[in-house]
Amino acid sequence: MTGRERPRRLTARLRLTLSYTLFAVTAGALSLAVVYVGMRYVPNYPLTSANPRYRSDAPSRQEILHSLLTAGGYALALLTAVGLFGGWLIAGRVLRPLQDITRAAHRAAGGALEHRIALTGPRDEFTDLSDAFDEMLERLQRSFEAQQRFAANASHELRTPLAITRTMLQVAAADPSGQDWTRLVARLQDTNQRGIETTEALLQLADLGHAPPETGPTDLATTTGQALAAVHDEAAELGVTVTADCRPAPTTGNPVLLRQAAVNLLHNALRHNLPADGRVTVTTGADPDRPGHVRLTVANTGAILAPEAVATFTEPFLRGRGRTAQAGPVRRGHGLGLAIVAAVAEAHHGELSLTPEPAGGLRAVLSLPSEQA
């Protein structure tokens, strides 16, 4: 049942007004009843004048009770009127913050996520609700903007290899006899492979965001060793020296995802390094900064990076200055490596931190809860 199909009820302001009035009238009626009952039990002594020659005009108890009921009735009527008027004003004042929150909710439903309530005043239930609503709007706005950027970037990344493939096929169809078919097929295979890798990375990101991975006892040292073996040839081709110190780092996780995270960190460190005499340092072991955690650290040489730029490196398809892969089949990437590592860390209740090195390069730390934690 939607909001428009719900049966019509009294407004909250009117219900509060009636509640205030009912409480005031009930309290007044009870007070009158107590006085009335008390007066009925007062001894009814005859009131006479001290001088027998004068006639006494003192009222009897019955007359006093009748006058009390009459005055009490007028007082209750006046109390009802004052209660309705005062209750209406008080209820409106109390519910005014709720009206602001309702208007903000309608604006958010219409797509205006940039609006904030920013309710002022002392802290109470309404300000707590307002702050929570503003925080929700801020998170929704960031998520919506990130989703828009992701969709635009994903469309661009997937469209690029298709456009390149179409161009190469059109050129080949226009001049079949003048083509180097071996080179053309190799370029088509390379472009197609890049499209497949991007699609697989997108699917991996989607899976990590919706379904928790299957986990079990594993060791970051083991998965990192496998990742080092996988990138050995690329490191040799790039001329980057890799130094590893893999000490035991037992954790609970998915070995395949952790190996992929380590491979992505190594690819990032290798492909965004110095043009010559680059170095990569890899270590695993206990995390001294976070008790009960183990970590994988990958540090590389490279260009000097600004901290504000590093804070955006986990955004999908990032193509910032100094982070764009160089030309050549070895150094090209799809811009999803660090985004996947961050998603893997979140799925394992861990954390990925990126810190620029003072002399240039990047230090990436993947911290996960240890197996004993």
Rank of each mutant, 00 (worst) to 15 (best):
E5C: 07
E5K: 10
R6Q: 14
R9A: 10
T11V: 02
T11S: 15
A12Y: 03
L16N: 09
T17H: 02
T17W: 07
S19M: 10
S19G: 11
L22N: 03
A27V: 15
A27E: 10
A29H: 11
L30W: 14
L32S: 15
L32T: 13
V35F: 11
Y36L: 15
G38V: 00
G38T: 00
P46A: 11
S49F: 09
R53N: 11
R55L: 14
L65W: 06
L68Y: 12
L68A: 15
L68M: 11
A71P: 07
A71Y: 13
A71R: 14
G73N: 02
Y74C: 08
L78Y: 09
A81C: 07
G83R: 05
G86V: 06
G87E: 02
A91H: 09
R93Y: 09
V94W: 10
R96A: 15
I101H: 11
T102Q: 14
R103G: 03
A108I: 03
A112D: 15
E114K: 08
H115M: 11
G121P: 03
S130P: 09
S130T: 11
D131M: 07
D131P: 03
A132F: 06
M136D: 07
R139G: 07
R139I: 06
R139K: 14
R139Y: 07
L140Q: 10
R142D: 12
A151I: 12
A154Q: 14
A163T: 13
I164R: 15
T165I: 15
P176S: 12
P176C: 06
R183N: 12
V185W: 07
Q189A: 15
Q189N: 14
D190H: 12
N192W: 09
R194H: 07
G195N: 12
Q204S: 13
L205A: 08
A206G: 08
A206M: 04
G209F: 04
T215H: 05
G216M: 01
P217A: 06
T218S: 09
D219G: 10
A221S: 14
T224S: 13
Q226S: 13
Q226W: 04
A229K: 06
A230Y: 07
V231H: 04
H232G: 09
E234L: 12
E237P: 03
E237N: 10
L238Q: 05
G239D: 11
P248S: 03
A249G: 02
T251I: 01
L258I: 06
L258P: 02
A262G: 09
H267D: 13
N268Y: 02
R271V: 06
H272D: 00
H272F: 06
L296I: 03
I304R: 14
L305R: 06
A306L: 10
A306R: 05
T314I: 00
E315Q: 15
P316I: 01
P316K: 02
P316R: 00
G322E: 08
A325C: 06
A327I: 03
P329I: 06
R331V: 00
G335R: 05
A339K: 00
V341E: 00
A342C: 04
A347D: 05
H348E: 02
E351A: 08
P356G: 05
